[in-house]
């Protein structure tokens, strides 16, 4: 079995995986970072979104071996100790989550969206979340959260 090495949330990690092992399986099962979720099997729902080398990636759509040498950030790597990331704080402040299952992927997508657009409009936020499905919130409060999070990230 191939060995794969990468940096996850600032820590060097490596493990033996099957060549068919997905990045999300490596993160959840090998690294036991279960904040990244699997909500579908067709790369549609976005529950598995992480950052790979600073770009959003659906970790169910990448093989673990494709992330060889990469710098990966998962939801567990976003907060600074007890201090939530501004986007996490904005989701809490605006009731941007209910069951919490889509939330990690939603937040990771939102951080990327805000990194690329400091002051997104409602329309830009809605279009930017196209790859993430939430069944609970109707997106109303997610959209508010992303707008506030983007502002507080220094937009």
């Amino acid at each position: 079995m191939p060995t794969v090495s990468m940096t996850v949330n600032g820590k060097a990690v490596s493990g033996e995986v099957e060549s068919r092992t997905l990045l999300v399986q490596f993160i959840r099962e090998h690294l036991e970072l279960t904040g990244t979720h699997v909500g579908c099997d067709t790369s549609q729902c976005g529950a598995c979104v992480v950052h790979v080398n600073g770009e959003v990636a659906k970790s169910c759509t990448m093989l673990a071996v494709q992330a060889e040498g990469a710098n990966v950030t998962t939801i567990e790597g976003l907060a600074n100790g007890d201090d939530l990331h501004p986007m996490q704080e904005a989701f809490r402040n605006n009731h941007g989550l209910q069951c919490g299952f889509c939330t990690p992927g939603m937040v990771m997508t939102a951080v990327d969206l805000a990194n690329k657009n400091k002051n997104p409009s409602e329309q830009q936020i809605r279009e930017g979340l196209e790859g993430n499905i939430c069944r609970c919130t109707g997106y109303h409060n997610i959209v508010k959260s992303v707008a506030e999070g983007a502002r507080n990230m220094g937009g």
Binding site: T34, G35, T36, E76, Q88, F101
Partner: peptide, 14 residues
């Protein structure tokens, strides 16, 4: 919210 936002939820598959 804090546990869900930081990836510390505890779902069955976790």
């Amino acid at each position: 919210d804090k546990r869900f936002l930081t990836g510390k939820g505890n779902y069955v598959d976790d």
